[in-house]
Structure formats: structure tokens, C-alpha cells
Design a protein around this nucleic acid. Structure first.
Lengths: 122, 122
DNA sequence: GCCTTATTCAACTACTTGGTTGTATAGTGA
DNA sequence: TCACTATACAACCAAGTAGTTGAATAAGGC
């Protein structure tokens, strides 16, 4: 409740980096230290530490102290909020599509031109 | 199934910008032209066009031509995939928490020392 | 053909960011 | 205390990006 007031900018931004997604992936299987997290990557510990800082600032990861170590673990609530935001969106999109269908039914245009992504002039 | 092979980097990156999220928000209520999308923002049309390009590259938005206009609309599948990815994650997180509980039950350590973030020397 | 509208491309600037190296802090164990 | 481990901080750099202005392209209407 009240929640973390998740910063969507920071959260989405944090997940836009493949290294950070991999870190999140690993943390999803349980807490880990910076050293453990850094192992699979060809990165300095400092770099991983920075990535963790980004994830922490975004509210996606929590840290605590365990002797010299500062293990990180995922913050469930933030991920939940993020997911909620997207789910909410999908619903709106579905709604939008219905409306679009109505529009198209009124319009003498083919249902959906085959324009998946390619935007090159011939 | 095979799906659009959604580029998570691009998709999350695209959503990490508040302007682009606002654009997506607006598009969720139906297609719109660049001009229409630009109206609520204090931005040039070029800037909005660029944002749309980012969203399109990320597979979140589709464009087509309608006379001089090039209306944009959300691409449902991509949003769905993104949501799926996060949902999948949440499941893993829940799993991870269970495992963590087991760990803590095995460990003579207080559940969570009050170390939120402050790391300053006195 | 010419003018208007809608949008994009190109070049440029200011700022952010992912990475580095080097140094400093915190905690453990001898 | 000293040595060692784990992590963070600071300064820096190369690359990316959000924004700008100005010019170009595309389609319609006259």
C-alpha cells in the first residue's frame, strides 16, 4: 500500500540495459553479492556495483549488509508495480483496438497494411 | 510463438522516457498523427517525430500512411510480450522469496538490518 | 505548376551514461 | 596492529541521446 511510488523513468531505464536485466535475472533466483553478480560478465566490479546502484535507485533491488558483503535482492513490490502499469496499458490498448475496428469498418481501407517494421524506399 | 522477437533493450528504453510514455498513453486511446501527439507537449514536431521513431523501432508503435498524414497506433503484441516478460519475472521473484525465507530460517541473523541507503562517514 | 500541410532528414549542441582506472572505506581474521 | 576481502567513491572518457534549427520530401487542393 502507498507503495514505493515507483519511478517509472528509472525503472524502465534500469531494465533497458541487458547487463542489468541479466543481473535482475540472476537475482530472481536468490540474493547475490556484487562479486557473484559480476562473475558471468566481463566487467569490473565497479561497473557491476554501478549497475546495482541504478537498479537500487529504481527501486527494483534492495541491499543490506552482511559482514563485508552487501548482498542484493530483488524488490518484489517494484516489479509488481511495473507489471501492473503495463497490464493496465494492455487493457487500454485492447479498448483502443475495438474503437479502431469501428473506425476501420467505417473507412474503405484494408484492415491492416503489411507494415511490420521495414521502412525503406525502394 | 516466435513472436516479434521483441527487442527488450529498445522496448524498455523507449518506455523509460516520460514523453514517450505519454505518447504511448495517448495512443492507447486510439491512433494519432504527429501533430496531434505533439500538441500537449512543449516540443517541436521534429522532436515528437523522433520519439515516434524510437517507439516504432522498439516495436511498440506502428505507422501507416493516410494522405499526407502518417498516423501512429500502438502495436498490441509488443506490449503483450513486454508484459509477459515482467510477469514471468514476478513469478521467479516469488519463488526466490520462498527460498530466501528458508535461508533466513536457517540463519541466526535478524530479518533485516536497518540499512536503507545512507552511506556517509560521520 | 504552385502553394499549403504533414512529416522527415541532416547537422549541431548539451547532457547523460556505461565503462574504465585509481583510491578509499568497512569488516574479518591473524 | 596488519593484511586481506568486499565494496564504494571520484575522476575521467567515448558513445549515445533528447532537443534544437533549417532544409527536403510527400500528398492534396487551387
Amino acid at each position: 500500500m502507498t507503495a514505493t511510488t515507483l519511478d517509472l523513468d528509472a525503472a524502465f531505464g534500469a531494465l533497458s540495459d541487458p547487463t542489468r536485466r541479466a543481473i535482475v535475472s540472476r537475482l530472481a533466483r536468490g540474493p547475490a553479492t556484487v562479486g557473484e553478480l559480476a562473475e558471468p560478465f566481463d566487467l569490473t566490479l565497479q561497473a557491476v556495483s554501478k549497475h546495482l546502484a541504478v537498479l537500487t535507485r529504481a527501486g527494483l533491488v534492495e541491499r543490506h549488509r552482511d559482514a563485508q558483503r552487501r548482498p542484493a535482492r530483488l524488490s518484489g513490490p517494484a516489479l509488481g508495480e511495473l507489471t501492473g502499469w503495463l497490464l493496465d496499458f494492455r487493457a487500454h490498448v485492447a479498448e483502443g483496438y475495438e474503437r479502431l475496428d469501428a473506425l476501420l469498418a467505417d473507412d474503405p481501407r484494408p484492415p491492416s497494411p503489411p507494415t511490420p517494421r521495414a521502412r525503406r524506399k525502394p
